[in-house]
Amino acid sequence: MLFYRDVQKLFGGHLKVADYFEHLASSASFVPCVSLSDNSRMDASNPWFGKRSVEYLPANYDYVFLAGMDWRDYLAVDHPPNQPVINLIQHVRHADPAEDVYQYLTQRAIRICVSQQVADAIQQTEKVKGPVFTIPNGVDLPDLSLEKSYDVIILGVKQPGLSREIHEQLTVSGEKVVLVSEQVPRDLLFEYLAASRVAILLPNVTEGFYLPALEAMKYCDLVIVPDCVGNRDFCKDNQNCLMPEYNLEAILASAAQAKHLLQNEHVLTVFKREMGETLRAHNLAKERQAFLEIMANVKKLWAM
Rank of each mutant, 00 (worst) to 15 (best):
I89H: 08
A28C: 00
C33V: 05
V172R: 11
V118N: 00
F21E: 03
V92W: 03
A255M: 03
E99K: 13
N297R: 14
L15Y: 01
D187I: 12
L214V: 08
C228D: 07
G161C: 00
S181E: 11
D143V: 13
V184M: 07
N231G: 02
G156A: 00
Y4S: 08
V298Y: 13
L201H: 09
D233H: 06
I154V: 04
F30E: 01
I224M: 06
L179V: 06
L105P: 14
W48Q: 06
L88Y: 05
R111K: 15
I112M: 03
L162G: 01
S149D: 13
L144K: 15
S196R: 01
K51G: 00
P84W: 05
D70K: 11
V101L: 13
I251F: 01
S196K: 01
N46V: 01
C228I: 10
E22T: 13
K259W: 07
N247S: 06
K9E: 10
I122Y: 06
V64W: 05
M295R: 05
L141A: 11
L188E: 12
A195Y: 01
L248I: 13
L242H: 02
V54R: 11
R288S: 14
Q83T: 09
W71A: 11
S27I: 03
E175C: 08
Y63H: 11
L202E: 02
A256D: 14
W71V: 12
A121K: 03
V77H: 15
D78F: 15
Q159L: 10
D43W: 04
Y104I: 05
N264L: 10
K272M: 10
V205H: 09
R111W: 07
G174F: 05
L252W: 08
P58W: 06
E55W: 04
A256Q: 14
C228Y: 05
W71T: 11
R232S: 07
P81L: 14
L162C: 06
A109N: 04
H260Q: 15
S45Q: 09
M304G: 13
L88S: 00
L214E: 09
T171L: 07
G174Q: 10
I224Q: 03
K299W: 09
Y74F: 15
V7P: 03
Q116T: 08
Y56S: 14
K218C: 09
T125H: 09
S35P: 09
N283H: 14
K286Y: 12
H167D: 10
V54Q: 10
M1R: 11
Q123H: 10
V114P: 04
T134F: 03
V180D: 08
R232L: 09
A285P: 10
L189Q: 02
D43I: 01
L36Q: 00
L88T: 05
D221W: 00
L242R: 02
C33I: 07
V17Y: 02
Y4C: 04
S254H: 05
I86A: 11
Q169P: 00
M69H: 06
V64F: 03
I86Q: 08
F291D: 00
A255R: 01
S53F: 09
M243S: 03
A296G: 15
T125S: 13
V152E: 00
M275V: 02
D73R: 06
L162P: 02
H260S: 15
A216H: 02
K259F: 01
T206I: 08
A98H: 13
G161K: 05
C33F: 12
V101G: 04
Y61D: 03
E182R: 10
Q159C: 06
I135H: 10
Q124A: 13
L105M: 13
